[in-house]
Write a protein that binds this DNA or RNA. Sequence first.
DNA 1: CCGTCCGATAGCCGATTGGATGATGCCGGG
DNA 2: CCCGGCATCATCCAATCGGCTATCGGACGG
Lengths: 208, 208
Amino acid sequence: MIRIVLVDDHPVVRAGLRALVESQPDLAVVGEADGAEAAMTVVGNTAPDVVLMDLSLGAAAVGGAEITARLRTLPEPPEVLVLTTYDTESDILRALDAGARGYLLKDAPSEDLFAGIRATARGETVLAPTVAATLVRRTSNPAPTITEREVQVLELLSRGLGNKEMARELFVSEATVKSHLSHIYTKLGVDTRAGAVAAAIERRIIRT
Amino acid sequence: MIRIVLVDDHPVVRAGLRALVESQPDLAVVGEADGAEAAMTVVGNTAPDVVLMDLSLGAAAVGGAEITARLRTLPEPPEVLVLTTYDTESDILRALDAGARGYLLKDAPSEDLFAGIRATARGETVLAPTVAATLVRRTSNPAPTITEREVQVLELLSRGLGNKEMARELFVSEATVKSHLSHIYTKLGVDTRAGAVAAAIERRIIRT
DNA sequence: CCGTCCGATAGCCGATTGGATGATGCCGGG
DNA sequence: CCCGGCATCATCCAATCGGCTATCGGACGG
């Protein structure tokens, strides 16, 4: 019997997943959580084999990747299977970096989900086809890395700040801001502030 | 017995909703659909009382609002209850304009969902609290209307075009483009191109 | 029928941006 | 130990941007 904890902030989805999972004789839901704290508590108390994690934890302050990382620090950490709507590169990488065993999309058939849970419990890695493809493309096509500082600049940029204002906000000179911007333009393949914001949002480097 | 058809492109969510709904003795799922065409067919064949519509129909070409509108053109149209993750103003307005009876969010408790379905079947209007609040704020605070021309400018803007390039693209003078931009800034409450792009994406005036 | 509102159009001008070029200190990997 | 990448700062300058002001024509209401 595979013991499962559900982490998802949507009661409807949680209840639905529970119903689905429990239709399988070898799977049992031993706990549910709707956020980071609840997840830590429930997992600590129930020591499940697998955690089904919804990454799109709404507007929660703590993302699913963060929770995954924290869960993996527990003694006898559970295997984490991420189940999400998004297949964005940064989401995937963050989740896998955080220690997730698998990454499935919500539009997968139920059978794939069950198979994924069982494989995850055995310690195998499970990836949705599109996710695997993304990873392959990624390794062959190294995406430029946006540094933390550059992300900060992008956030200010999306709020419409000028170079002078950004400089003040970041406690650096205007020249430095312009330098960061130039690098951002190169990495995102754009040459204007507006284009940079659109590209950054599209790649989920920043969120609105 | 209230007869229900589920429309959602996620098998997991569909199966989950079905399990949830069927736990209620007075509710029955008589059909499921994962897209626009399937929805029309299934609803036509089963003549349900209520359609549970997931607006976030992934990257489908036809949005939930569109499907809702089409369903309402059927003879003896079903009542449509929208169930979605998003509470963006434009999403809400589109859905209600399309003829949806209610608008619930996925983070609502199951009981609210059941109550919503029953109310919808009786022809009552059901709105999630945040949705209702948004509508109220909206009526008291009339949102500025972005004209079609301005949307075109915003789209080009998000692609990083300069005023000259936009002017060429739209067959107008550069001065005209700048004028449109000024109006856009006023309406979106920003004063830079970057801010305008972020605001436009956030309000779903344009999509990435 | 007339006044008003508003979208689309347009030009001027000072402020801002983006590109080019170069330099310094720091840190981590080979 | 040296190299590369990141963050920092500086300067010059042409091109672009954003604010201000104004005209025109169609829609709408009185």
